[in-house]
Design a protein around this nucleic acid. Structure first.
Lengths: 203, 203, 203, 203
DNA sequence: CATGAATGAGGTTTCATTCAT
DNA sequence: AATGAATGAAACCTCATTCAT
């Protein structure tokens, strides 16, 4: 029992090592230029070891994205658990998002391109990674529309996409250029929320 | 004289053939998976012919982006020429953008990923292609702030980025899923402008 | 320990296989017409394997030359170790050279063209492979001048070059045309030495 | 008649233009790296024009060598016409050779590699370009042996080869390094002849 | 004849993936 | 399970040669 679970735990550790290295290199060089060999080396394993944990390069990439998405989704739900109003939930979503991106720049670098890669490469479009996040945001928008402070004329899916893209856009600029740090996280949050809520407010 | 200009014209036609094929394949498969051979084949030329017009694959890609950006910028400035108020100019910007993306889906597909490619690959970051568009939008935002209907508290650069990202996001959704055609171009335009202007309005 | 050294030994064996095939093909077809694919095939490896041992084609070529030069220089110094007089050393040099060329025809074929390749291709001129041999011969000439049986009026560098070129010329003829075997190695040696020593003798 | 001969003359001029450009580029970059396109450009013709005068790249190369060899052979015979003794003829050969190489460095650069290229590439070995020169020198050696001042024990062919290789070697050094100009042409000539005649002298 | 754009075979090199140890 | 050397397909790019104008 214990022996088995230790084995299991070790396996997870190795997997995590590889994912971490992959995250770093995919962010640094992009999907195509990052090589499995380099990832393995950075993770301090042999090339072949990667294939004991992931079917192929695409699988590694997807697992990486999905793992992080799950983390992020967990944060969202956790941060929201004690909150009542949909407005507060959206506020929490934006704050958690900004914080997560700040702490996980490599991941952000990768996700920033995800939209299109997933469009252009059939292989990845099968597993729409961002979907879960989008669904979550859409549900928040719908709640907000019920509560009456987001206008019902907006397609909740579209409104959700817009909120997400604002979050991405602001993060991109914020994280890319170190200098822009004149605004702190809270100010970024307020700016996004200000524009979004005013923009979609029910009159 | 005439012979020379015909030669020149032929040369441009061939170049355009190749650019068109490249646009299609880059959109379909992405920069790395699209091969020069396939592009040449689609354009009905031999592989080597591509290299008579473009130094290498990166040069072809850049020429493609730059050409289209120039087209788009031309449209913007043309569509705006008779307009006075900055508000109308922004409206024109959004309309022209949506129209252009609708007519040039392949290009849209490519541009949608540009942000990131340019981040990760040094080679392209040299020539920040989208920069000109961004500068143009920023100038519109600044005008609007002077006119007083966009709040001066917003960083015009950031506000511009947000407007562009809304345009991209909405276009993406609109163009990706044919079904969503329940909304026409004008409705998309109104939605974007509604949210943006309300969002950033001076109180 | 043993496992490690066996691995190391295997590595060297493979490297030697490839060098041998390269030597054969470079000699047969010349640097440019010999392809990596053919070299790999002759060595019974896949194309990519060559690149596990050599950075690129130029590196392979250089490694080949340098390895052989080292062998040859080793032979010279070994053959000379028990000898006292500079005259005997030069005699040994010529004999070892003829023997080595006879046993390593492929290498000879390659070296015979080295002069020019190194002139025209910047890439190779960096590492002037023959330089060590030349330096060695020059030192022998200088010793001979001190001993008084080579006239001091000759530039030792030039005299050395001439001796080497005689060795090459005679070898070329001797090895090229099988028929010329009427003269054996010793006769060739005597002819070269006869002309050289008489030619440069101090009066 | 006249029109025809002018045409013929023009044709020869074009041919000469191309040969000159080819000589320059083959010397500069070597046979493989020099491209027909570059040669045509340097000669101020279109690529295809080269093929109106030469069957292919190899043919151009050979024609170049053969033309120059013929020039050189002409010089030898001319310089020798008024001379009686074989010794003087060999002296003239060396002087003319040095002079010709000095005036035709590009050609020298090319010829210096000829030996081997012709060995390794079947296509060129068919037409042994240097053969005529060699035959000429051999005939001089034979005369000298008859006259009694070159020892009859030497194979005249081999002795000739050695004389030629000395000429090449000395020229190479002399022309390669500008600095070495401390010795003038006459001194080079005397050195070569000194060594050669002493070396092969009949006792 | 002259042109030079077009061709496409062929070379070098990379790298995802496999498999014997 | 872990290793990492070996594989070989496939990409980019060059350039000798052809041929329609």
């Amino acid at each position: 029992m214990i022996a088995l679970s230790r084995k299991e735990r070790d396996r997870k550790l190795r997997r995590a090592d590889i994912l971490k290295a992959a995250e770093h290199l995919f962010a640094l060089k992009g999907y195509h230029k990052a090589t499995i060999r380099d990832i393995a080396k950075e993770a301090q394993y042999a090339t072949g070891t990667v294939y004991l944990h992931f079917k192929d390069k695409g699988d590694l990439y997807l697992a990486l994205l999905e793992g992080r998405i799950k983390d992020l989704l967990g944060l969202f739900k956790e941060g929201v658990s004690s909150l009542q109003s949909p407005r507060q939930k959206i506020e929490a979503f934006v704050r958690e998002g900004l914080e997560f991106f700040e702490k996980n720049r490599d991941f952000f670098q990768i996700i920033a391109s995800e939209d299109v890669e997933s469009l252009s490469e059939k292989r990845f479009s099968v597993s729409p990674v961002g979907r879960q996040i989008k669904d979550y945001v859409v549900s928040l928008v719908k709640e907000s529309q019920k509560s009456g402070f987001i206008d019902k004329k907006y397609d909740p899916f579209q409104a959700g996409e817009i909120l997400i893209s604002m979050l991405k856009t602001v993060s991109m600029e914020w994280l890319q250029k170190e200098k822009n740090k004149k605004m702190n996280l809270e100010q970024q949050q307020n700016m996004i929320l200000g524009i979004f809520f005013n923009g979609v407010a029910a009159k």
